[in-house]
């Protein structure tokens, strides 16, 4: 009986651990993906702004569009944890 209890506890703990790992991966990987996407957009945005200051508002908006990827990751990780 005691052995069965221990096995159940181990299974539950692993479940929580894997969930946490999944949540971490979902935020971490989407964060990296966002960074890669923003790298090129950001440098193009700075270049465009250096030549024409009027486009600052527009390029700022374009630069943050890949943020949605990390937000999806965050939402998925929150759903996993709670």
């Amino acid at each position: 009986m005691a052995e069965l209890d221990i096995a159940v506890q181990v299974a539950e703990a692993s479940q929580i651990g894997l969930k946490a790992l999944g949540a971490a991966l979902s935020v971490g990987l989407t964060g990296i993906a966002t960074a890669i996407a923003e790298m090129s957009i950001g440098s193009a945005a700075v270049g465009a702004t250096a030549e024409n200051k009027d486009v600052f508002g527009l390029v700022l908006l374009l630069t943050v569009i890949p943020e949605t990827i990390v937000i999806f990751g965050l939402v998925v990780s929150l759903l996993m944890l709670f």
Binding site: S43, E51, N52
Partner: peptide
């Protein structure tokens, strides 16, 4: 630093070209 400086300068050239 990877493609970042290329993207920066090529975008600037493109904006300048549009001003011709």
């Amino acid at each position: 630093s990877g493609p970042v400086p290329y993207v920066y300068v090529c975008t600037r050239m493109r904006v300048r070209k549009s001003k011709l």
